[in-house]
Structures are given as C-alpha cells and as structure tokens.
Design a binder for these strands. Structure first.
Length: 504
RNA sequence: GGCCACGUGGCGGAGUGGUGACGCAGCGGACUGCAAAUCCGUGUACUCCGGUUCGAUUCCGGACGUGGCCUCCA
C-alpha cells in the first residue's frame, strides 16, 4: 500500500510542500518548547497541540518507532532568575532556580497531558546541554561567524550576521532593510545592529558556567587582551540552545541509526516548528547558527508556524484581565464560570486551522464540548479498528483537521444508526486524534457508580408502578450531581432501559 | 515606515468562474408519561469600491478593517 503523502506549508518557501523525509525510517522533528518560569497560558497550548497532531500523523504514516520528536525545555533564562529571586529569596540562587524550573516544568507536563498530548521522544533541558552550546559557540568563533565584545553587562559572544549573506531568508528581511529601520537601538559594541548574543557573562547572582573560547588575533586586539583563549563565566543566549539540542538529539545521538539518505544531508532534519512570533528573530538566528556552524545549505527542510489566538476578541494580556492559563481552564471556574475537560480545549483549538488566528471564547468551548460528547457517545463501548482514512487524509493536507469534521460526523451518524463497523472506526479515529472515546461521558469512581446504578433501579421500579413524580425526583436528584439519565428501549425485548452520562 | 497573515450567515468552518457544503446555536416535528439522547425538516452570508467576464464570493487592482513580527513575546 502506498504511503499517505503528507503536505505541509513551509514558511521558508511560503508554499505547501510534500514532506519527503531524509530517512523515512527516522523522521525527525524539533519544536520549540516552553520557558519554564510560570504557568503556561492557553496560547502556549496551541503549538503543543498542533505539533502533537503532527507527531501522531507522522507516527501513523511512518510507524510509531520511526519518528523522533524533540521538544526542548528552556530552563535557563533571565525571567527564571527573576522569578527565583522573587519566590525563593532565602534560598541559594541555584536551588531557587531549580525549584522554579521543576515546579513549572511539572505543571506544564500535567497540563499538556490533560490536553491529550503524547510525550515527545526527547524533552531535553537547556541546562543539560550547556557543553554542547559552548562547543557550538566555539566553533562559530573559530569559523569567523562570532566574536567576543564588551557589552554593558560584561563580555558577550555575538553572532556576526554580516558573516552570513543569506541571513534573513526565513523572515524575508534583508540585512539592509534592518539597518535602514531605525528601530533597532545601535549598541556600540556590536559590529552590526542585528548581531545577537550567543553567550553572556554572568554576575555572581546569575547562573553561570565556565566557557573557554579561542580568541582569534583580531578579536584579541579589539579587546586589548593577549591570551589565545578566554574563559567567560556566563550563560547562553536564547537562540543557541535550539541549535545545540536539535543537533544533539536529531543528529549526533542517532547518527548511527540513520540511513544513507539522511547521512547524505548531515546535520539537517525534517521539520522545525513553533509559534508565528518565533520566525524572527528566534528561528532566523537558529538557522544562522546551525547553518554556519555545520556549513549546511539548510537547517531543517520544512519550517512550520502556528498562528496566535485572541481571547473573546481581544488580545490576551494581564492588564485586560483576560489572561488565562491552561491550569485555570482545567481546574478552576475562571473562564466561563466552569472548568473544561482537556479534550474539549484540544478540540476547540483544532477546530481552526493551525495557521489561522483563533478567537478563543466560551462559545467555542461549548461547541467543542457538544461535538465531542456526541462523537464519544456514538463511539462508546466500541472496539477500535483503524482511523478514518478521510480524517487521516485531511490531516495529511497541511493538518486540515477542520476539513475532517464532516467525515467524523458521518461516522457518528452511521454508528448511531447501528453500524458497528462505523462505531469501531470512529473510536479508532477519536483515539488517533487524542480525544479519548468516553472521557466526557464517565468520570466518576466505582463507589459512586454503584449508587447511581441503585438509583436507576429504584427509578425503573417507580416507573413500572407509574409513579412518575417519584421517578422524576430521582432523575432530578441525580442531575444535580451531574448525572444525566437517558432512557432507551432494549432492542431485543423492547423493555425500557436507562443509561447515564456525566455532565460535569 | 518595512515585512507577513487574514476578512464567508448569530457562531465555527468548507468550497467554487455559473444550481448558496457541513456543524453549533435557534425554530418546527418525530420518539418519550415528561425529559435526555437520537432522528427528520428549516431561515439568514461571501468587508467595501473598481476592473476582467455573458456571469465573481471565487481572478486582477485599490480601499477599509483585524492580527503578528521588526528590543530573547507562543
């Protein structure tokens, strides 16, 4: 059987392209993950969900063991330092930082698991890859793509954007344009205004690692130093971590397993993703670092970017009071006066194509819940066969989930009409998409379950005695606990039966 | 100012050079003792202005509007 062709919009070319992995036995994807300094908000959830869908699609098409998905955790950042000093002023800095990043990281993992997202193949932490970053920076200095300068807060290693003529290719800005735009403050120590930090010296109250760099002669002269090497106790700039970690986990560590097709394109991988805002400068800079360090014509084949979301028609911001975290949606009644199941948040996110803006609203969540509930009802108790090919096909066309909805609705309709095969396909499809097959319907523990069944039996007895007031009272009472009863006829005997679902 | 997206009915969202998908909500009906679920039926739209065309929501141009980036912000 021919493999499903996957087409994705590539920001590099602004076109939909057929995905042609260097090595179909090792499809490799890197997505920029969270900086762990605070609860993730609902905007942060979008790339996580979008690229989880892509991960699932890739696993489906290429096989679960043939996809490597790397999503980093940024655990060194000045925002983290600030948070550590604020929240744990009495602890030693490193300990305080560790507390912040562990706590926030754990919360992030709980949040995205509730959103139905699979764990990536590797989730490297920046702090576990400092050596790799230092090596990469050293390489860039040695090759003449980076230099050491004295900035306002100490020594800095800067990337020299003029050393890369193709800089700006992803975001479609030429260096000339950027220099013409007067918005970039010209910092005197930079050779060129667009130069960005690779490594910066740390004070005692900032996290730091000792890095030894060679100092080329001209650079020595500029700094007024005589040693051939320079040790800078410092910390990495933001961009370098992704270059270092993608190289390590998508190339170095798996190189021996890669096929000739991949080996013919060393240091390159298939897909790199993230939010729209990362195109410039973050991804542009990653490309500059990786391509220059490894002397490659590209870093990744396909660059994908998800759109932003607004909340109830407005930009989400703390000052507007519409800032909402994943945690709050899942666990509190802050948004729409109730909490929301993770699967509902997931569907609400996927209803709109990943590149389009989303207006995240209560109305949207309500619609998503109605939809998902109906799908799960139709799939309930069915075995799983294979996911719908129409749905897979819609996803394969640039993750067009919204085009798959009619196909899912059709399966649900057939399942409701008694088509067991459709029900099995629907169950498999919902599972494939990460929605679960009955998570919205039953969410109570066993002891409670017994009480519900007993109440149902009482009600059926009351009904048999035509005691409708009593039967209705039982039903109403259960409803206050979130248990919705639904009567139906036994298809064989015609007798009245009752099932229920949880509406909480 | 530069670059990049996007504007379809109350909402979500397909799609097409010519008989207005689909879904949610609403309304009507069937079923039910009544509900719930399910099923059937049903109305309203292509931001504006030009142009091309026998004919444009669809192609071209312009305007307006919304959002993103241009100082490490998803």
């Amino acid at each position: 059987m021919a493999r499903q062709e996957i087409r994705l919009t590539n920001t590099l070319t602004r076109q939909k392209e057929v995905l042609t992995p260097f090595d179909p036995a090792n499809v490799r994807m890197y997505v920029c993950g969270p900086t762990v300094y605070d609860f993730a908000h609902i905007g942060n959830a979008r790339p996580v969900i979008v690229f989880d869908v892509l991960f699932r699609l890739l696993r489906h098409v290429y096989g679960p063991d043939h996809v490597t998905y790397v999503r980093n955790i940024t655990d060194v950042d000045d925002k983290i330092n600030a948070r550590a000093l604020r929240d744990f002023p009495d602890l030693p800095l490193n300990e305080a930082i560790r507390k912040v990043t562990e706590k926030t990281g754990d919360q992030f993992h709980k949040d995205v698991a509730a959103l139905g997202c699979l764990t990536p193949s590797v989730e490297p932490r920046a702090t576990e890859n400092i050596d790799q970053m230092i090596a990469l920076i050293g390489k860039l200095i040695d090759q003449g793509h980076a230099y050491v300068a004295r900035g306002e807060e100490g020594l800095e290693v800067l990337f020299d954007v003029l050393s890369m003529p193709e800089y700006g290719g992803l975001s479609n800005r030429s260096l000339g344009e950027q220099q013409a735009g007067a918005r970039i403050a010209v910092e005197g120590h930079k050779k060129s205004p667009g130069d960005f930090v690779l490594w910066k010296q740390s004070r005692d109250d900032q996290p730091g690692w000792d890095a030894v760099f060679n100092l080329p002669k001209p650079n020595r002269k500029a700094l007024g130093l005589s040693d051939e090497t320079l040790t800078i106790h410092g910390r990495p700039g933001w961009h370098i971590e992704c270059s270092a970690m993608s190289e390590r986990y998508l190339w170095t560590e798996i190189e021996e397993r890669l096929s000739d097709g991949a080996l013919a394109h060393p240091h390159q991988f298939d897909i790199h993703g993230g939010g729209l805002d990362l195109i410039f400068p973050h991804h542009e800079n990653e490309i500059a670092q990786s391509r220059c360090a490894f002397e490659t014509p590209r870093m990744a084949q396909i660059w994908m970017h998800n759109g932003f979301l607004q909340v109830e028609g407005q930009k989400m911001s703390k000052s507007l009071g519409n800032f909402v975290t994943i945690h709050e949606l899942l666990q509190t009644d802050k948004f729409g006066s109730r909490s929301w199941p993770g699967e509902v948040l997931r569907l609400a996110m996927l209803m709109t194509h990943y590149r389009e803006p989303i207006d995240f609203s209560v109305k949207r969540l309500e619609e998503a819940e109605t939809k998902l509930r109906a799908w799960q009802r139709a799939a309930e108790n069915a075995e799983m066969s294979d996911p719908s090919e129409e749905v897979v096909g819609a996803l394969a066309d640039d993750l067009g989930f919204q085009r798959a909805q009619p196909a899912i609705d059709a399966l649900a309709r057939k399942a409701n009409a008694g088509d067991a095969e459709a029900a099995e396909r629907l169950a498999a499809t919902l599972d494939f998409l990460g929605f679960g097959t009955n998570s919205l319907l039953v969410q109570i523990d066993a002891s409670e379950n017994e009480a519900v069944e007993a109440a149902i039996a009482d009600r059926l007895a009351a009904l048999a005695a035509k005691d409708y007031p009593k039967a209705d009272a039982i039903r109403a009472n259960l409803l206050t606990k979130g248990i919705q009863l639904m009567d139906y006829k036994d298809p064989a005997t015609g007798a009245r039966r009752t099932k229920w679902e949880n509406k909480k």
